[in-house]
């Protein structure tokens, strides 16, 4: 072994890795994977068994099999799509706008004392208040259509984007700003080439939080002011004690949340690799 290492140093790690491959994988990620999938599988199994054995009242708890059946049926007959599309439209517009407005605003607030002093009272107040309480007002102002719902999503998510972006700007390494300054970068260049890339991990973390907030706001808005959308679907099914359909709605929303989160996590690793490689 030591001879192999000495004569072919470039290849020495390979046999080592192969020898302890399974044990290594198990230590690194096997146990975690088993725990992750094991936990959720056990939960679903118990739920199903409980429903079949009669420990759980299917009227209240439904059951995994019933939910899947309902989901498949709604996908096959196409009745779920108008709801998905309606919700996706509100979520997409509201979330998109909140990033488009929140990031620049957070950048400016983090960079300029004047702008921060002016706007901070508003952002603190909005962040502290339960934004759903604005829905009646938004409906009065903007009507019952798409606009008021997008506005509610925006209100909830944009504040997260502002606060996270601002936090990202405040932690920018001052020495890098000084370096850029020493090489004659102007304020716009410092913003685009130093502040924005440094704050990017915070911005993406903010987007991940904002996805969650967006989904909540979509549901709330659709419950109160809609005749379609997943929020409406859930609310209507609840009224009819159709628990399987309630769970279908929740499941679709949760899946969307998990997927978007995963996508953003991946984007963060791609866009800010130094954050991960430095420690690992």
């Amino acid at each position: 072994m030591s001879q192999t290492t000495a004569t072919v140093p470039a290849k020495s790690p390979a046999p080592q890795r192969r020898r302890s491959g399974v044990a290594y994988w198990w230590r690194r990620s096997g146990l975690i994977t088993v725990l992750r999938f094991g936990g959720i599988t056990a939960f679903i199994a118990l739920w199903e068994i409980g429903a079949r054995a009669g420990w759980l009242d299917p009227l209240f708890a439904s059951s995994p099999a019933l939910i899947v059946e309902k989901l498949v049926q709604m996908v096959m007959d196409g009745s779920i799509w108008p709801h998905v599309i309606a919700s996706a439209q509100i979520a997409g517009l509201g979330f998109g706008l909140s990033v488009l407005v929140g990031v620049p605003m957070g950048l400016l607030m983090g960079r300029s004392e004047t702008i921060r002093a002016t706007l901070e009272p508003f952002t603190i107040a909005l962040n502290a208040s339960p934004q759903v309480a604005f829905l009646p007002l938004l409906i009065i102002w903007l009507g019952i259509g798409l606009t008021s719902k997008v506005a509610l999503v925006f209100l909830g998510s944009f504040i997260i984007m502002v606060i996270n972006t601002e936090a990202g700007v405040t932690q920018v390494d001052k020495r890098l700003v000084e370096t850029a300054h020493s090489f004659m970068a102007n304020e716009r260049q410092i913003m685009m080439k130093i502040i924005l890339p440094s704050a990017l991990p915070y911005i993406i973390a903010g987007m991940r939080l904002a996805v969650g907030r967006t989904l909540v706001m979509v549901v709330v808005a659709e419950i109160y002011a809609s005749t379609k959308g997943l929020g409406y679907l859930i609310f209507q099914a609840g009224g009819l004690y159709d628990t399987a359909q309630v769970f279908v709605g929740v499941f679709v929303l949760a899946t969307a949340g998990v997927l978007l989160n995963g996508l953003l996590r991946w984007a963060e690793k791609r866009l800010a690799p130094w954050q991960h490689l430095q420690n690992g």
Binding site: R175, L176, T179, K193, P197, S198, W274, Q278
Partner: peptide
């Protein structure tokens, strides 16, 4: 710069 100050990205 004494502390290099390179842009990590």
């Amino acid at each position: 710069f004494q502390e290099f100050n390179l842009l990590p990205w």
